[in-house]
Design a protein around this nucleic acid. Structure first.
Length: 369
RNA sequence: GGGUAGGUGGCAGAGCGGUCAAUUGCACCAGACUGUAAAUCUGGCCUCUUCGGAGUUCGGGGGUUCGAAUCCCUCCCUACCCA
């Protein structure tokens, strides 16, 4: 068994547990910083760990294109290559089928891409996605899925679900790395019946973990929040549940409240690079002139390296001067903020006070001036 | 004292008779960012505005013209060269 999941406590639908992997344990609910190209942008692994991360993401599509999955394999695997010895989850490239859609042609066989790097043609099939992730040596691999946009018409949505199920089967069939767990991905958009159907088929295939894909792809956040409880409830209780690509802090809490265990999102790092800081009083834009002389730390009660040592005024200066330390420090903070939130959420679940914790967080974030 | 090249919006720098409130970059102001083609992108940036427009701008003054940032005269200023 490549991974196992221990459920340690619940509070309503919310769950606290531990995902055990060959490279270490992950307490849940967990947030996974995104390191698409074999790096959490701007941060060393030491910084990522110090910020509180237990597990990070890598990406099949990007790493296969460059430097190449066989190269990574030959150099000892992704953990060694990037010097991260904790757990790694690799995304399958399914999201790139969505986000690079203008250059992608999808057939039942696979997704034909044009490389965003040099335009060269390539095809990502379910089998190839499995192979790449096995070469990378991640602890958790994702099946290749088709992730339609939120406004896709019902027929397209249904077809994407059908294809995602077939592809999941092929991925499972092709998978052969015992120390790697493969998670399936439920699609279906906001159609709960379709979601349930998709989940049922995938659960029958008995994967060690299940993800909800196809959220935060253009729909209103409230619509996603409303759909999550039912979607999560379709998944096995004794296996980890992963909400892919989500989201803002309030989305993570909504997910956790619905019974989701794992999250990933580029938001803390990308927004950090773009001078937006998540704070206990809501998001702030450190490029704004009002922070020019603000001696306070980025977030008032944050214990991260950034907040322990630097002022908002200094961060404002770094971004104004275009200094690379600005994005780095703010990525450190934002990741720490997300991970602290998950740690507190976990404690609140175990202490059966998750809903009041969530309500308090939302009240504070929304009270911002 | 003589010559030459110039003086355009916070700065740099286009424009050289009408389509110019004036290209562009920087700076500045604000916004966006959800399984990362993103240290990126979008909008604003003379004044007023009922957002339809309206009013004042291109060193100062005067002139030519239906019309001038653009042509002429004059004054002021800057840079370089010659005495």
């Amino acid at each position: 068994m490549a991974i196992s999941f221990a459920l340690e406590g619940t509070c309503g639908a919310a769950r606290a547990g531990t995902v055990r992997t060959p490279h270490g344990d992950v307490p849940t609910p967990a947030f996974m910083p995104v390191g698409t190209q074999g790096t959490v942008k701007g941060l060393t692994p030491e910084m990522v760990r110090a910020a509180g991360a237990h597990i990070i993401l890598g990406n099949t599509y990007h790493l296969a294109l460059r430097p190449g999955d066989e190269l990574v394999r030959d150099l000892g695997g992704l953990h060694k290559f990037m010097n991260w010895n904790g757990p790694i989850l690799t995304d399958s490239g399914g999201f790139q089928v969505f986000s690079l859609a203008s250059q992608v042609k999808i057939t039942d066989h696979g997704a034909k891409f044009k490389s965003h790097i040099d335009g060269s043609p390539l095809e990502l099939t379910p089998e190839r996605a499995v192979e790449i992730q096995q070469n990378l040596g991640s602890d958790i691999a994702m099946v290749l899925d088709e992730c339609p946009p939120a406004d896709a018409d019902p027929a397209k949505m249904r077809a994407a679900v059908a294809r995602s199920i077939k592809w999941a089967e092929r991925c499972k069939q092709h998978h052969s790395r015992p120390q790697q767990a493969q998670f399936a991905i439920v699609q279906g958009g906001l159609n709960l019946e379709l979601r349930a159907e998709c989940a049922k088929e995938l659960v029958a295939l008995d994967f060690p973990g299940y993800a909800l894909g196809g959220f935060s792809v253009g729909e209103a956040p409230e619509a996603m929040h409303a759909a999550l409880p039912a979607c999560a409830a379709c998944l096995p209780e004794h296996k980890p549940r992963y909400l892919m690509g989500v989201g803002r802090p309030q989305d993570l809490l909504a997910g956790a409240a619905s019974g989701i265990d794992m999250f990933d999102c580029v938001m803390p790092t990308r927004n950090g690079r773009n001078a937006l800081a998540f704070t206990s009083d809501g998001p702030i834009r450190l490029r704004n002139a009002k922070f020019r002389r603000d001696a306070a730390p980025v977030s008032s009660d944050c214990a991260c390296y950034c907040c322990a040592n630097y002022s908002r005024a200094y961060l404002h200066h770094l971004f104004a001067a275009n200094e690379m330390l600005g994005p780095t420090l703010l990525s450190v903070h934002n990741i720490a903020f997300y991970l602290t939130l998950m740690r507190e959420a976990r404690a609140a679940i175990l202490e059966k006070r998750f809903e009041s914790f969530r309500a308090a967080c939302l009240a504070r974030w929304n009270a911002a001036p």
